[in-house]
Design a protein around this nucleic acid. Structure first.
Length: 360
DNA sequence: TGGCGGCTCATATGTCTCGT
DNA sequence: ACGAGACATATGAGCCGCCA
């Protein structure tokens, strides 16, 4: 069995592969989580900039229509291949309501549509949304139909979805196999994780396999068949896919990671790896925050040493670093941190001459 | 026409309780 | 002990309408 140190390096290496072309990176990840908060950029962009050569904020949104991608809920909302999308869908066979059928007809007639344009056809009352705020009913209908697989996101306009009618999908494989494919894809995207985390992340796939016990058995069969590898580190059992690639960890690199980066997402694994509790506090009340609205973990070599917050002020990037323990003393750290801030600035298309960095 | 207020869109995690 | 489900929580950007 590998030591914690070896295992952590392997997980980082697998996830933070050398930057390549967009299509290759998307294939290697298989899924990229989306989040709309821009502080300083959307989660999908922050995730991809470490893995795609010369990535600029917004590239995924711009290239989405050509990349044969879909937006869909896997273990979270995000971007995935059409193949994987066809495994997630179709969902339950429940009949659509009259309102939903009408919505679908209108979009079929008019082609790709913005929820604003739909309002004139099906009305747009103000209704309570899933988040407790308010949305227009036309928008809600589109969201429901998208979730059911009847609509797809054609593209985004300034981050706002434009929907079109999706091709009807026939279930090609038995539900147990579909769930197993979803499990493998999730492991590929997230990297090593525990049975418990994987099963809880995928618990909404009840429409494929109803009971927890059966879902657990689906997972066990993958392990027994040797398709999932098991490592026990400090008595914690981790499941992962064997990528077969053994690159060497790039040395002397500082990386500012998104709150939903695959390296960060499993908070329990994060805690085990670095013995520090990271929290995403955008949705915690201001007075209870400890790290900040959108604190991003900072990886130095293979250690998480603290967090950074970033924002744009007067056209320039402003980054503040904070440390769990203390700032690494080496000069190489300062250079690497400055170089990461420059990369972030370039990715955002900002003027580097008005940049402000507080290294702490 | 410039500025401002207000609304909408985008979406997440963490914690608690209750039932098995 | 664990899973399900309810509930609470935030803010930047863009757009529209209104008024000075």
């Amino acid at each position: 069995m590998p030591s914690l140190d070896q295992f952590r390096k392997r997980v980082l290496n697998d996830s933070l592969f050398s930057p390549c072309g967009m299509a290759d990176a998307l294939e290697r990840l298989g899924f990229v989580q989306a989040d709309p908060i821009r502080c300083p950029a959307r989660a999908q962009d922050l995730i991809l900039r470490h893995r795609v050569k010369n990535y600029r904020a917004g590239d995924l949104e711009r290239r989405y229509p050509d990349l044969d991608l879909e937006e869909c809920y896997l273990y979270a909302y995000g971007f995935l291949s059409k193949d994987l999308w066809r495994i997630v869908h179709p969902k339950t066979e429940k009949k659509l309501t009259a309102e939903h059928r009408k919505t679908l007809d209108v979009i079929r007639q008019h082609g790709p549509m913005h929820s604003k344009d739909l309002e004139s056809h099906v009305g747009g009352e103000r209704v309570k949304n899933y988040w407790g705020g308010f949305s227009r009913s036309a928008k809600m209908a589109m969201e429901t139909l998208h979730n059911r697989g009847a609509l797809r996101v054609a593209n985004r306009n300034n981050g706002i979805r434009v929907y079109e009618v999706a091709d009807e999908i026939e279930p090609t494989r038995p539900p147990e196999e579909r769930l197993q494919e979803i499990m493998l894809a999730t492991l590929q995207a997230m990297g090593a994780t525990t049975r418990r985390f994987l099963l809880s992340e995928l618990s909404h796939f009840k429409y494929l396999v109803e009971s927890v016990a059966d879902r657990r058995r689906c997972l066990q069969r993958l392990i027994d068949a040797g398709r999932i590898r098991v490592d026990t580190i400090d008595e914690i059992e981790y499941l992962s896919l064997d990528s077969g690639r053994r690159g060497r960890m790039k040395t002397d690199i500082v990386r500012i990671l998104a709150p939903f980066d695959p390296v960060v997402r499993d908070r329990t694994r994060f805690e085990h790896f670095w013995n520090w509790t990271y929290r995403f506090e955008a949705y915690t009340p201001k007075h209870k925050r400890k790290l900040g609205y959108y604190a991003m973990p900072v990886l130095w070599r293979d250690q998480i040493i603290g967090w950074a917050t970033a924002g744009v002020e007067a056209g320039g990037l402003k980054v503040d670093f904070s440390y769990i323990d203390r700032r690494p003393k080496e000069r190489t750290f300062r250079l690497a941190a400055e170089s990461e801030v420059n990369r972030l600035s370039e990715f955002l298309g900002l003027d580097q001459s008005i940049q402000e960095v507080t290294l702490g």
